[in-house]
Amino acid sequence: MIWTVYLSGEIHTDWRERIQAGCAELELPVEFVSPNTDHDSSDAAGDHLGTEENPFWRDHKSSKVNAIRTKNLIESANIGVVRFGSQYKQWNAAFDAGYLAALDTPYITLHDADIIHPLKEVDAAAMAWAQEPEQVVEILRYVTQGK
């Protein structure tokens, strides 16, 4: 079985690359999918539908276009990894975690200890909490190979 792993969350560090490299090194049977991680193109996803004077409606249109991708990728995932960085509030990642939980798709949260409290509900629904990408790799190794 090839496991599909949905990588959600902050876009300012190399956590995705570290997980992907670690899994490739171990030759784990995983494929990775994620939302659009290019901030500018994500914000502009709905711009081709017409210019908006009010930034709310620009964001609204782009979030709906982005949701076409996100919903399908989450629904096809076997497991999710949801990364919360300390520098920015990743509301979209919290939404992804909630959607994964609603679909009963197991997910791992990845964040530092200093934001445990604000993420208590998100962590409570997670199957594991990791602080480093390499810990996620070890979890993926176990669930895909049983060792």
Rank of each mutant, 00 (worst) to 15 (best):
R18M: 08
S34I: 05
A101P: 03
A126N: 10
I139Q: 02
G98L: 04
A125E: 14
P106D: 11
Y88C: 03
V137D: 06
A21S: 14
V143G: 01
S76F: 03
Y99C: 00
M127F: 07
E31Y: 04
V122F: 12
G9P: 13
A130E: 11
K120G: 00
H12I: 03
H48A: 13
D104R: 05
I139E: 04
R58T: 12
I11M: 08
I19R: 06
I115A: 02
A93H: 04
A24Y: 02
P35R: 12
E52K: 15
S62V: 02
T4I: 15
N66W: 00
I79L: 14
H12A: 05
L28H: 08
A93E: 05
Y142M: 04
D59W: 08
F95Y: 14
V5R: 07
V136A: 08
Y99P: 01
L119A: 03
S62T: 05
L7P: 00
D112F: 02
H39W: 11
Q135T: 11
T51M: 08
I115S: 02
E17M: 09
D96E: 15
L73S: 07
P55F: 07
Y107L: 01
D38W: 01
L100F: 14
I2V: 15
A97F: 10
L7G: 00
P29T: 07
E52F: 11
C23I: 14
G22V: 08
E31H: 11
G80Q: 09
Y88G: 03
S76W: 03
K89P: 03
A24R: 13
E17Y: 07
I19K: 06
G98R: 08
E17G: 09
L100P: 04
G146P: 11
R83I: 01
V65M: 08
I19A: 04
E132P: 00
D96P: 01
V65N: 01
Y99I: 03
Y142P: 00
Y142H: 13
R69W: 05
I108K: 06
K64V: 00
V65L: 04
L73G: 00
N66D: 10
A126F: 12
W3I: 09
A97L: 13
A45H: 04
P133L: 08
D59E: 13
L119E: 11
F84W: 10
A101Y: 06
I74A: 05
P55V: 09
I2W: 09
G146F: 07
E138Q: 14
R16C: 14
I11W: 01
M1T: 09
E132R: 14
F95Q: 03
R58V: 01
R83E: 10
I79M: 11
N54G: 00
H117D: 12
Y142W: 13
Y99R: 06
E10N: 12
K89C: 01
H39A: 10
D114I: 13
K61H: 06
A94T: 04
I68V: 15
E17K: 15
G80R: 10
K61C: 03
Q131I: 10
L119N: 06
L73W: 11
K120E: 08
A101H: 12
W15Y: 12
